[in-house]
Amino acid sequence: MYLQLMGLSKSYNNTMAVEDLHLELEKGELLSILGPSGCGKTTTLRMVGGFIPADSGKVILEGRDISLIPPNLRPTATVFQSYALFPHMNVIQNVCYGLKFQKRGKKEMLAQGEEMLEMVGLKHYRNKPVNQLSGGEQQRVALARAMVMNPKVLLLDEPLSNLDAKLRQKMRKEIRDIQKELGITTVYVTHDQEEALSISDHIAVMNHGRLEQVGTPKTVYDSPASRFVAEFIGRINFLAGKGEQISAVRPERITLSEVSGSLPGIIAQKQFTGAYTTYFVRVNDRTVEVDVPSLADREWNPDDAVYLSY
């Protein structure tokens, strides 16, 4: 394994922020740590980056324990949620800042910085003050500044949370493209399940400082290991099945019919969202969400009686 987190724990004032966390990454892999705020995901990232010392546990990189190496000597690079660009420097000064400490020639430094700026599509902004850039551009500078260090592990802390929805999707793709092209091992912290599903090789879901499940996006979505994971990732209905059994069913796995099905219900409300329409169907005392592709032949309206199949 390329990067291993072995039993990391951290507590603040007797509250466990992270508890006995084990994670492993292959070289070149992108792993997302997904969870609600306060679940310990950022603390985990800070421990990998060396900003917060772990109470116990180890960070192993290429078989070597790096737990005690200070952040300035640790071969990791972080893109912070706030971007943390240096406000008094321009774009290229920001990007080349870390190269100074590697004792390179000035020309070589600039060449590397420019190469990286080109990669993120900001070469023409080379001399612009960073506070004159848009959010997306600042994000790219932060990314370039971390990538130019050629880190062994790239750490991204909710990198897209300050961007609007459209830009978030665009940057998501760009980050993934660059990450794949350079084959850089990456830990990606996010609370956005859609983001995690779309960008990751593996997802680690955390809650209350504990790891709930690790797996490929498909596994985590299709076979959630716990109720928490099922509810946190995507939407889910809990339906009373045969006998005592309760089955968890995603909205898109249910079909509606007016003639036959396993459960009868009444349409309470419908929401058109573009690609599909979500129906809220009252079944006994609960409401079940059902996604029906908007292109389907049949449309229902509130108060229609339907049957649900899954």
Partner: peptide, 21 residues
């Protein structure tokens, strides 16, 4: 934002250098 200093440290600056820069 303290992340700004973290960032300098992350990129290789020592504590004194981060303070200065």
């Amino acid at each position: 934002n303290p992340e700004t200093e973290y960032s300098a440290r992350d990129l290789g600056a020592s504590e004194i250098t981060a303070f200065k820069d």
